[in-house]
Protein backbone atom coordinates (compact mmCIF):
# COMPACT_ATOMS: atom_id res chain seq x y z
CA UNK A 1 0.00 0.00 0.00
CA UNK A 2 2.75 2.43 1.03
CA UNK A 3 4.98 1.63 -1.94
CA UNK A 4 2.04 1.89 -4.36
CA UNK A 5 1.20 5.29 -2.94
CA UNK A 6 4.84 6.37 -3.12
CA UNK A 7 5.05 5.23 -6.75
CA UNK A 8 1.85 7.10 -7.55
CA UNK A 9 3.04 10.35 -5.97
CA UNK A 10 6.40 10.19 -7.72
CA UNK A 11 4.65 9.49 -11.03
CA UNK A 12 2.20 12.38 -10.53
CA UNK A 13 4.08 15.05 -12.56
CA UNK A 14 4.67 12.67 -15.47
CA UNK A 15 1.02 11.62 -15.49
CA UNK A 16 -0.13 15.26 -15.35
CA UNK A 17 2.21 16.23 -18.22
CA UNK A 18 1.18 13.31 -20.46
CA UNK A 19 -2.51 13.89 -19.73
CA UNK A 20 -2.08 17.63 -20.39
CA UNK A 21 -0.36 17.09 -23.73
CA UNK A 22 -3.02 14.56 -24.74
CA UNK A 23 -5.75 17.07 -23.94
CA UNK A 24 -3.94 19.77 -25.94
CA UNK A 25 -3.51 17.36 -28.87
CA UNK A 26 -7.11 16.20 -28.82
CA UNK A 27 -8.36 19.76 -28.31
CA UNK A 28 -6.26 21.09 -31.21
CA UNK A 29 -7.38 18.29 -33.55
CA UNK A 30 -10.98 18.64 -32.41
CA UNK A 31 -10.95 22.38 -32.36
CA UNK A 32 -12.28 22.41 -28.78
CA UNK A 33 -10.79 25.43 -27.04
CA UNK A 34 -11.75 24.23 -23.51
CA UNK A 35 -9.79 21.00 -23.93
CA UNK A 36 -6.68 22.89 -25.03
CA UNK A 37 -6.98 25.25 -22.04
CA UNK A 38 -7.50 22.35 -19.61
CA UNK A 39 -4.52 20.57 -21.16
CA UNK A 40 -2.28 23.59 -20.53
CA UNK A 41 -3.57 23.60 -16.94
CA UNK A 42 -2.38 20.03 -16.41
CA UNK A 43 0.96 20.81 -18.10
CA UNK A 44 1.43 23.75 -15.69
CA UNK A 45 0.76 21.49 -12.68
CA UNK A 46 3.14 18.82 -13.99
CA UNK A 47 5.93 21.36 -14.52
CA UNK A 48 5.36 22.95 -11.10
CA UNK A 49 5.49 19.65 -9.25
CA UNK A 50 8.43 18.32 -11.26
CA UNK A 51 10.67 21.38 -11.13
CA UNK A 52 9.45 24.25 -8.94
CA UNK A 53 8.67 22.29 -5.77
CA UNK A 54 11.96 20.32 -5.60
CA UNK A 55 13.96 23.51 -6.25
CA UNK A 56 12.07 25.41 -3.55
CA UNK A 57 12.59 22.53 -1.09
CA UNK A 58 16.33 22.52 -1.78
CA UNK A 59 16.50 26.28 -1.27
CA UNK A 60 14.59 26.15 2.05
Amino acid sequence: MGSTLAAFTSAFPAVALVFGFLLVLVGTTDGTRELVQGGWGFITVGLMVEFVLPISRRLR
Binding site: G20, R33, E34, L35, Q37, G38, W40, G41, F42, T44, V45, M48
Partner: peptide
Protein backbone atom coordinates in the same frame (compact mmCIF):
# COMPACT_ATOMS: atom_id res chain seq x y z
CA UNK B 1 -9.73 30.81 -18.49
CA UNK B 2 -11.69 28.68 -16.03
CA UNK B 3 -10.71 25.56 -18.02
CA UNK B 4 -7.04 26.37 -17.57
CA UNK B 5 -7.28 27.35 -13.89
CA UNK B 6 -9.51 24.54 -12.62
CA UNK B 7 -7.05 21.61 -13.08
CA UNK B 8 -4.21 23.68 -11.62
Amino acid sequence: SFYYGAPV
